[in-house]
Design a protein around this nucleic acid. Structure first.
Lengths: 157, 157
DNA sequence: AAGTTGTATGCAAGATTTTTGCATTATCTT
DNA sequence: AAGATAATGCAAAAATCTTGCATACAACTT
């Protein structure tokens, strides 16, 4: 695929966030490239795929984007999930200020993916419902995705 | 990868089910290959990947298995979901007797995937909690997956 | 400040899983 | 049985994710 323009809905002025401090708080070495990637991520108002971020960033290698996302997730700066589209989606735009487990878990929420346009929205009006699990199962992650057709795509059809 | 033996935990005697009628009820032409595949599917007591089914069936081409699973899902004979393992999983072993939307929706349930062994279990003790969605979003599918470490893998570590 | 060490990055290529084109075969209809 | 339609197998492509390795960068030591 050719590297063409991609849009990230603008979210908040870069000046509002101290990216370097944010990386420090998550025990991530704040290299120049990581800061660039973090700034790029912060511009996405909705969950994004690795490819979208790569196209948006434009100067940074695919493998670096990949490894950086892995690092960021390991250090709980963002979270990822599969939305049924075949691509993994990453979500940063809810506060991942603290790196502890409780804060990280609190950032998780329901996602709604449109089968037509492939976009994923966050559903934050309600927490992910907690359910009882098989005995001895140690939960690390909860992923609740609703698939269907969004209102825009429904109107178009 | 070489085609080696794979186990599908045995579930119920083939005689108990009338596969041909089941296909008919879902408006699927009951070809010889499809019956074979359906029988194979019925032997899996837990969600399985396309690859697992392909290896288990042994004589049927990968693309046929793929297209058959697509057909079966379109006709609501089974359902599929992404469990975070990178492979799509298919689930048949709860009654998909009727082909109508309500029955199909009723078959959906929570899944728990072990990050270590990659196995996915069904959590049927509780229905998938219903949540309010963005206005105008037309739900087709609900997918609730819990990831973590299962009790067997936890004991081994 | 220069040298040393460990980590991060870019490039290229590999691995995995899913998907498709097309010729052949099977199934269904008349 | 002939013709029409759909399903299947084979091969290969596409899409996505992942890794090996050489170079570049950052932090630390002296």
């Amino acid at each position: 695929m050719q590297k063409t323009a991609t849009f990230a809905v603008y979210k908040k002025p870069a000046s509002v966030m101290n990216y370097e401090e944010l990386l420090h708080r998550h025990d991530i070495r704040p290299t120049a490239v990581r800061l660039l990637i973090l700034k790029g991520i912060a511009d996405f108002a909705a969950p994004f795929s690795m490819e979208e971020l790569y196209l948006f960033l434009d100067t940074i290698d695919r493998s670096t984007v990949f490894r950086t996302l892995v690092t960021f997730e390991e250090h709980r700066l963002l979270h990822s999930f599969e939305d049924g589209s075949g691509k993994r989606k990453y979500c940063f735009h809810h506060s991942h200020e603290a790196a502890d487990e409780a804060s990280h878990a609190a950032c998780r929420h329901i996602h709604a993916t449109c089968r037509v346009c492939g976009r994923t929205m966050c559903v934050t009006t309600q927490a992910v419902p907690v359910v009882p699990l098989p005995d001895g199962f140690e939960v690390e992650n909860v992923n609740y995705v609703v698939t269907g057709v969004c209102s825009s795509c429904k109107r178009r059809s």
